[in-house]
Design a protein around this nucleic acid. Structure first.
Ligand SMILES: [Mn+2]
Ligand SMILES: [Mn+2]
Ligand SMILES: [Mn+2]
Ligand SMILES: [Mn+2]
Lengths: 253, 253
DNA sequence: CATCGTAATTAGGTGAACCTAACTTTTGCA
DNA sequence: TGCAAAAGTTAGGTTCACCTAATTACGATG
């Protein structure tokens, strides 16, 4: 009569989801896939202040749109998102909380790998993308503590605190920075390792100061001066719009 | 005509298997489940020098025997084990290699967590059990290097080298040690956290020297003297056969 | 050497997370 | 305002890794 074994879905048990932590979080344990969807939705909402669309999520996660539709239904059932059919999704408080928790894990891991284990800033993201689903809360806390609870990750992105608070510093894209002005680099997008290696070779990293010398029309290339230490510092460089949209600078005021 | 996307099974892609590393290992990437099966088979073969049986594997992994049968068929198809129907399984060279690789990962992670991040020896196993499937080779190498390529994990178990060599020190179970003799503790089984906490409280850990004072018949309790530093050291203790079978001591010669 | 208990396998599910092909809804634009 | 393209969903698969119930093989014993 009584089932012999753990009747939970496979993904929530030992393996296959990666999401099996220990503490019984309200609403049940989240799989690794779910954590990545929530992170993606969070990032898209943040970016546009609008509901995230199916195709944006699909593109970001490199998953076919119908697969996303299916997952969104599951996320809605679990009350992690609100889904208006054909319109898009937004995170519920529970979903946002879970997204920020995963984001904290991701960024703490990145910071630890870079600071303590000597990983380069273009390799930490891929590693963190997997470890974020396998590390316990305990491990994340210990890594953060070992670094003195860092405020940002190696790419300059703010690290959510243990209680789910994310400090939002006003920034704008380097692509939007006025010609002739200087600004401090706040962060660089961490998804594309090649881009990070290139940007790093130009001494563009969080804290560096960049001056926009000129901007070609029609989303054209940007001429920059990077002031900072290093061999290439102080020289001018021409970067394309992809790079200019991957770099965030402090907003002037 | 051409398939739009990655046609690999879901478990080998982004998530769901945990086994998706980066380097294209020969024979295809292994899922986290497969890695755990191979580790279990390796341990059972090591223990008895006989083919591992379905029910032993099932018990060790807490999985129903029919599920194990199914997985064994898949492992045999992938040439990781040899399977004689109704008889048992043994690892092929490829399977053994994979098992040792996972074992190395597991033990390096345990050692790192204990030495660098201050985890206690009774908590590292659970953490390593998940991280072993998500960490890259690079990460394992860096953790091992940070510790000066340790020879053993916190429980005294030898760590396989990068090239898959495992140093086998002749040991016997504390349960088999002759009455009246002393021996150095080589290792303690790491699966049961509660047991580790208890054993640790008796100052029984790798390197400690234990003397068997007496042994009650019929698999009965053992009276021990633990010599070493610590408050409880030098006192006698009585431990049951479960503990006596979890502790390995150097073999006399 | 027949039999019976145990071990192993087969048969037939399930849910998660993906896919392509086909269909429906929304929307941008002539 | 009508209509085609784009976006989103539904329909119908697949694989993985688990499950229970039923069946088959093995091997110990009388
Ligand atoms: Mn991830
Ligand atoms: Mn980052
Ligand atoms: Mn494991
Ligand atoms: Mn261990």
């Amino acid at each position: 009569m009584t089932p012999r074994r753990d009747p939970r879905p496979a993904a929530e048990r030992g393996h296959s989801g990666g999401g099996a932590r220990h503490g019984g979080a309200p609403g049940g344990t989240l799989t690794g896939s779910i954590e990545d969807y929530l992170k993606a939705i969070y990032a898209l909402e943040e970016l546009t202040d609008l509901p995230a669309t199916t195709s944006d999520i699909a593109e970001r996660l490199d998953i076919a749109p119908p697969s996303v539709s299916g997952m969104l239904r599951r996320l809605a059932t679990r009350k992690l998102i609100r889904h208006e059919r054909y319109r898009g999704v937004s995170l519920t408080p529970a979903g946002r909380k879970a997204a920020l928790k995963t984001l904290r894990r991701h960024r703490v891991i990145e910071a630890y790998l870079a600071s303590v284990l000597g990983f380069s800033w273009d390799t930490v993201h891929a590693e963190a993308e997997r470890l974020e689903h396998a590390a316990s809360d305990e491990l994340i806390d210990r890594m953060a503590a070992a670094l003195g609870d860092p405020a940002t990750d190696p790419h300059g992105a703010p690290i959510p605190t243990r209680d789910g608070t994310l400090v939002i510093v006003p920034t704008q894209l380097l692509a939007e920075q006025a010609v002739g002005t200087s600004a401090r680099v706040a962060s660089v997008g961490d998804e594309d390792g090649e881009l990070l290696r290139y940007v790093g070779s130009l001494a563009i990293r969080p804290g560096a100061v960049v001056k926009v010398v000129s901007r070609a029309p029609f989303d054209g290339p940007l001429t920059l001066e990077v002031s900072g230490s290093g061999a290439k510092a102080g020289r001018t460089h021409v970067v394309g719009s992809t790079v200019a949209r991957a770099v965030k600078v402090d907003k002037p005021r």
